[in-house]
Every structure is written in C-alpha cells, then in structure tokens.
Design a protein around this nucleic acid. Structure first.
Length: 816
DNA sequence: ACGATCTGCGCT
DNA sequence: AAAGCGCAGATCGT
C-alpha cells in the first residue's frame, strides 16, 4: 500500500498510517479477512510536507520528484506483486494518470523497477488505485465498503494474477452483414430471457455529464447495443444504418435497458426512433440496490466487471469506447438483477420504477391549467406591496450599510446629493465614512451578510443557528429581534419583503405555462427514501400556510366542465409509526386524530378520557373535531410536537419552535413525557430497537423492500451518530411513499384515472375529473383504491380525505 | 459570463 | 442538532 505523506502523528513516530488516517484504514480492513500486517505500508513522500500541505502546493512536483529515488528503492527491495495506491497522489506517481475517482478499482499493469539497486530493469507489476483513507473520513464513510472491495481485489490479484475481460467480440466498424448477424443472435438470446441494452453518444454529451444536458436535438453520433457480456456492437448514426438501428431497438418484445434512460430515450424519440417496450433504467436499478453510492457506469463497472478502465478513451477510440459502454451495461445489468433477486427486491423495483415511471412522466406532462388573468392581478398587487416595503427598507437603512464600490469614473452631475434612496438601480455618491467616490447600491434584504451588518450596527445581539452556531438572519430570528426591539423599522419589513420576493420569483414567475395554458412538472425518484421529487417547477412546495395562500392557489384551475379533486392520506406517517412500533393503540389514536388527542392532554379536554375509555367512535370524532376547530393553535402545535417526538426531536428543539407556548425546555420535556407515557407508549422502545438494528446490520428495509444504508448510527460511547435519526425517519417516510405509489399504479390501470392524475404531493394525489353524473362514483373508486388494505402491512389501511373544487384555492370537503 | 457554494425558505 | 426534497439570491473565484 502506497499512501501520500506522513501526517502529524506519523511524523512524530516516523511510521506511516498510525494517525487518524491509519485508524480509518483499520476500520476498512476490519471488513476484510486481512489485517495491516498482511501488507507493507509506505508513502510517496518520506517526510511530512510543510503545513501538511502537498496536493496543489507549490512544492508538490518537486517534493514527489525528490522522493522518487526512495520510492523506487522501496519497490525494488520489496518487489510487490501488487501495489495498492491509496489516493490520487500515489496513483499518479505510479501510473502518471490522474483522476483517482474515475480510476479507482481498475487494475493497471505498470512498468516498475525490479532487481538490485545497481542492476535494475523494468518489469510489469499490477497497480490498483483506491481512495485515500482521509478522503473516506471526510464525510465519505459510505465508500468504506468499496475500499474493502478494492483491497480484496488487490489480494486476489496478488494471489492469482489478473486477466481483463476480452474485447475480441466488439464490433467496432460493423458491416451490414455483421449487424444482421448481431440481430440474429440477439433474437435467439432474447427469447431465452436475455436483456438488450442500448446506449447513445451525442456530439456534446462526451464532454459533459449526461444528465446535465437538456437539449434533446443535439446530434446523436452513434449507438451501441449488447445482449451478452463480451459481445457488443456500435453503429454510427448515419442514414444507411437508421433502419437497422430501429430494427434492433424493436427486437425485444418486453424490455429495453438503458443507463440513465432520461438522457437516451427522449433523444432517440426526437431523432425519429420508436420505442414501444417498457424502458428499464439500470442506473435507477443500481440506485435501488445501493442508493448511497456513485451512479456513473464507470464506477459500477469497476465492481461488477473485470473490464479495463475505458471512460478516459472517448476521444482517442470512440468506437471502442462505445462498445465498452454497451458491454459494461449488460454486465452491470446482469449483476444488479442477480443481486436484487437474491435480496428478494427485484419485483418491487420493476413495479415501483419500471412500471411507475411512465405513469409519472404522463402525470407531469398533463399539467395543470393556470388562470392567466388571476395570475396577472395577483402579481401586480404583490409587486406593489413588495416595492413599497423595499422602499421603506432603503430609507431606513443608513448609507454606510449599503454595498459600495469605489469608481474612478466621473459621475453624472444630475444625481449628486439625492437625499432619499429609491429602490431600483444603484446611484453615485460619496461614501459616508471614507469619503470615496463610487457606486452606492440598494440594501439587499436577501443578503445575510448585509442584514447581519445591520444587526451589528444597531448594537443588537446577533442570532446564532442553534445547530451550527453560525450567525444567521432567518425568519424566526428576525421575528424575535422585531419583538425585542419594537421600534426597529427594518426587521419586520425584511421578513415581509423576503416573503413577497419569494412568492413573485419562485411561485409566480417560476410557474411558466405552455401555450395551452398548462404548467408542467417532472417527477423523479431521486430521494434516497424513494419518495417522489418534483422539479421544473417543484409543485410539491406550493404555498399553503401563508395568509394569501388560498388566493394564490386560486390560479390553479380545472378545465371548463371539470373539477380538481385532491385525496390526502390522513396522518399517514403517524399511522405507520404505530405500525412499525407494533402499537395497535397508537394506530387507533393516529387514525382518530393523534394531534387532537395530544391537544386534549394539554387542554385537559374531555377527549382525553373518551379516547382512553374506547368511547364510541362518533363521540370521539366529535370531540376531535371540536379541538381541531375550536383550539386550532394548540392543535397545530400538538401536530408538530407529535412529528418531532416521533422522529426523536429534542425538547430543546420544541421550545425553540414554540418559544411562546412553552416557558422552558423543562416544560416541553414534561409534555414529551406525557406524550410518550400516555399516547405513544411503544414508540420510544421502537426508537431504541430501530437504531440498534440500523447500527447492527448497517441498513434498514421497509415493508416493501426499499433499503437504505446507514454508516454513523451509534458511536462507541453509545451516543447517536449523524445517521441515527435518518434511520428513524426512513421507515415511515419510505413506506408512505410506497403506499401512494401502489395507489397510483392501481388507479392507472383504468384509463380514466390514468388520464386524470395530475400531481403527487407526498401524501396527496391531485386529479382533474369531468364534472358529470359519474363524478361521485369516480371519487368513490379513488378512495376505495387508496384505502385498500395493504398486504405488506398485515392488511392495514390508511384513511383518505377528499376535497373538490373548480380551483385549488377554494376546495370543499367531499362526503359520499 | 458562468459555476460552485452558502444561506434561506417553501412544502410533505 | 426530526427527515426528505427544489429553487432563488448573494457571493466569490475562474
């Protein structure tokens, strides 16, 4: 093993890898059958570089060159079969190749000095690159297992040597006959159950990450296919070949495999190709298998194949590169499928991604109508307010706090000495302190730096983020400053101006309707919990708690003769917490209204005893309703307390969230105890068990087979690591995602619902349905499908609330 | 002009 | 120090 240089601890003892990086190396080795005594450890540098700085330092090249003699001598003396390069510096010193993150895990054969110091010669030795342990320590603990894999590969090479996979059957410049031969063999293999993979190269995608490109009309240069490891074909995108390419794309009856289909499929369609099969995205399959590891094909191939590194050859050998892509795809696909089947999670992936994603694409594309008139009016009203408030801020903030850039240019005399600032462009002036001439800009209420300078200039205490300790100018902190200094003209106005600014920028101008008046979004399954995410625009964070939220939402309307129907799962995460905690009482509370029941405890309301005594449901529900309507403030606070407590939020956090409701942290603590002792009686035990489980096997599976890995759950002293609460949140959150996906899949089987689905907002589905005599029946079907008992959860069902309206701001409760 | 990073904030 | 996201503005470096 060859590292970089001695750290502080190492330099003291003169031994490599005995400091923190050494401890990390030991942790990695503990995942393998070997110990550090099985290896010899050296560094590229024999000494400690000044300030522990080597990479990018002015002395980097010189220092490495200076120590090369020692390094060569060490290699000659030890004559290693394999050198494992720990980090980019070592790999580059050995192979002259950079980009360790692209090359790690791949095996290189490198000319190395062997023999006596006075009569040495070159001989080929194996070199494998892996991460430097300090890189893994810097927040990349998820890569520990990969480094263990690299070490195992090095040992394997040392024992048995290494043979790269063969590229003899790559068809890099195909004749039409060779294409037909590929087709004939593929037909046979596909009928026996093989996958067919496809991959395009585009003129500009070579230099850019594929998913960053958005222009689907970029020219395609070639396409490659494979159905069998080692046998790949690449076909130039030229007129003579296009019909053959379409033939191959149509070969498979059922599935066509891509790596990141979001890139390839829209481009193939834009270039006239038909793709009628279901699209299997092997990259997402990998994401489903291991959501926390890098997703590039080059990375995954280093694990599933013995291919030589090829990703750096796109320019020098484009045909070979393209065949390698196809070969890597088929090998990785086969490996990932096998692993998912071994874990019993393959069917879930095919259903919840391959089947679901086309439905989500249709949902995003069908879009929701925007009422342009309302939108215009609303924007104008808001913009006027924002301008007025901004102007008030500009007048209240002293010149000395406004951004100032010194300029040498002579000013236009007309603006000299203007007394009061107006919002808009900057103006020229003399700096009030330094007297310099320059450009004085407006005070930016969105700039935390400028707002902090204002707070300090007033001699007010600077708010600190209670997690990070950093200075902050968040809304809550400005609110408490405003309370403490009621005469201050700025704090409340900053809050208001920021709010209006965000509404205009993100929620009005960010929603651009197509010519048909509809606004479209894209649903992805990127979150590590396999929730859905929405982007361009994100329709899952539309204003709801704002005092003008309903007026804002009125611009989202149903088409004439239609209505919007929104179906929300009621308290889904609370019910699921009860399910995972195996607490039937808590499930009952969650379904009746756990927030109201907690509020009843706070308020000493009769509901408390009704619930405990299992009173008749109508009676309990009436009391729940009473609290929800009559004590909305306490109800809303109880709701957040339930959420925070279920995911192990601290009493301190609750106090910070509700400084007015609680006099002290101790009081919040008392209330939490009340909640755990009387309502959520088994939840704390579930917390403990879940954290222990996540720490023990380093991952959790939910009831549908969604998996999440965790690395820093329990520390050696029993305290919680950074992943402990993520583990607690994972099960209810990911299970809720799976439940609503199942509902979408079932509803999409019927054309009328498939076409009517619009947006998914985590626990809610929004539909646009014809307003006709079938409406009630259709809503009934939606409710029936969404509340159907869930076999994976022992037949649990989740209640649904439905609202209906002609626009999204005036929705009325629907009752059958 | 453009990208990366930080801060802030909307929703579930 | 509940979790999970996406978007916009400010700032700084290239």
């Amino acid at each position: 093993m060859l590292g970089e240089a001695l750290g502080a601890t190492e330099a003291q003892k003169g031994v490599p890898f005995v400091g923190e990086a050494g401890a990390q190396l030991n942790r990695t080795l503990s995942r393998t059958p070997w110990t550090r005594d099985d290896f010899r450890l050296y560094n590229v540098l024999q000494c400690q570089p000044p300030k522990n700085w080597l990479v990018g330092a002015p002395w980097e090249a010189g220092a490495i060159e200076h120590c090369a003699v020692h390094r060569d001598r060490i290699i000659r003396d030890t004559d290693p079969k394999v050198i494992l390069a720990l980090g980019g510096t070592a790999l580059e010193a050995l192979t002259n190749k950079g980009e360790i993150l692209k090359r790690r895990g791949y095996v290189y054969s490198v000319p190395t000095q062997v023999g006596d110091s006075d009569s040495w010669r070159f001989a080929l030795r194996w070199v494998i690159g892996t991460y430097h342990p300090s890189y893994i320590m810097q927040g990349n603990q998820n890569l520990t297992g990969i480094q263990a894999f690299d070490i195992s590969r090095a040992v394997e090479v040392a024992k048995n040597g290494w043979e790269w996979t063969s590229d003899e059957r790559y068809v890099e410049r195909p004749s039409l006959d060779q294409i037909d031969e590929f087709i004939n063999k593929a037909v046979f293999a596909l009928s026996a159950g093989a996958w067919l993979t496809a991959d395009i190269e585009t003129a500009r995608s070579v230099t850019t990450d594929e998913d960053e490109r958005t222009d689907v009309t970029d020219p395609i240069t070639r396409i490659s296919f494979s159905f069998e490891p080692g046998y790949a074909i690449t076909i130039p995108w030229q007129v003579d070949y296009l019909s053959r390419i379409q033939d191959i794309l149509s070969l498979s009856q059922e599935y066509l495999v891509f790596w990141n289909a979001d890139f390839d499929v829209p481009r193939l369609k834009a270039h006239g190709m038909k793709i009628r099969q279901k699209v299997v995205d092997a990259m997402y399959m990998w994401h489903f298998l291991q959501s926390d590891l890098p997703k590039s094909l080059g990375f995954v191939a280093s694990i599933y194949t013995k291919m030589p590194e090829w990703k750096s050859m796109s320019y020098t050998a484009p045909e070979y590169y393209s065949c390698c892509d196809a070969d890597a795809q088929i090998r990785c696909t086969n490996g990932i499928v096998a692993d998912l089947k071994k874990q019993g999670r393959f069917d879930t992936f095919m259903r919840h991604h391959t089947e679901l994603q086309p439905i989500l694409n249709e949902m995003g594309q069908s879009g929701v109508l925007l009422d342009q008139e309302k939108r215009k009016e609303f924007r104008a009203a808001i913009e006027e307010d924002r301008k007025r408030i901004d102007n008030e801020i500009q007048c209240a903030v002293p010149d000395a706090l406004r951004p100032f850039k010194t300029r040498r240019k002579v000013p236009p005399a007309a603006v000299l000495g203007q007394p009061c600032k107006t919002s808009g462009t900057a103006q020229w002036g003399y700096h009030p302190d330094t007297g310099e001439w320059g450009e004085l800009s407006n005070f930016l209420y969105n700039s935390s730096g400028q707002v902090l300078r204002y707070i300090k200039s007033q001699g007010h205490p600077v708010p600190r983020n209670y997690k990070t300790g950093k200075d902050t100018t968040g809304k809550d902190d400005l609110e408490s400053l405003a309370k403490r200094y009621p005469k201050d003209p700025v704090y409340r106005r900053i809050i208001e101006a920021r709010e209006l600014h965000k509404v205009i920028g993100q929620y009005i101008d960010g929603y651009v309707a197509a010519p048909d008046g509809r606004v479209r979004t894209t649903f992805t399954q990127k979150p590590s919990t396999w929730r859905l995410a929405s982007e361009g625009p994100n329709v899952q964070n539309v204003r709801r708690r704002w005092h003008l939220a309903n007026r804002y939402r009125e611009q989202f309307v149903a088409a004439p003769g239609h209505v919007l129907v929104e179906a929300d799962y009621r308290a889904i995460e609370a019910v699921l917490t009860g399910f995972y905690a195996a607490d039937a009482d808590y499930i009952r509370a969650a379904k009746l209204g756990v927030h109201s029941i907690l509020a009843a405890h706070i308020l000493q309301h009769p509901l408390r005893d009704l619930w405990a005594a299992h009173a008749p449901e109508e009676e309990v529900l009436a009391a729940v309703w009473d609290i929800k309507k009559g004590h909305k403030d306490v109800y809303d606070k109880a709701k957040t307390i339930v959420h925070l407590s279920n995911y192990k939020g601290s009493a301190r956090r609750i106090k910070i969230e509700y400084p007015d409701l609680f006099n002290s942290v101790a009081e919040a603590e008392r209330l939490q105890r009340l909640y755990f002792a009387n309502i959520a009686t088994k939840v704390e035990a579930w917390h403990t068990a879940t954290v222990a489980k996540a720490a023990g096997c380093s991952y959790l599976d939910n009831a549908f087979g969604y998996r999440h890995y965790f690395y820093d759950v329990l520390r050696w002293d029993g305290t919680y690591g950074t992943d402990a609460k993520k583990a607690l949140a994972f099960l209810p959150q990911s299970t809720a995602a799976a439940i609503i996906k199942e509902a979408i899949l079932r509803l999409a089987q019927k054309e009328v619902y498939r076409r009517a689905m619009r947006w998914q907002i985590h626990d809610a589905l929004l539909f646009e349905l014809p307003k006709d005599r079938l409406l009630d029946a259709r809503i009934g079907t939606i409710v029936a499908e969404m509340t159907r008992p869930i076999p994976q959860l022992n037949g649990l069902s989740i209640d649904v609330e439905v609202t209906v309206g002609e626009n999204w701001g005036e929705m009325q409760e629907w009752r059958n």
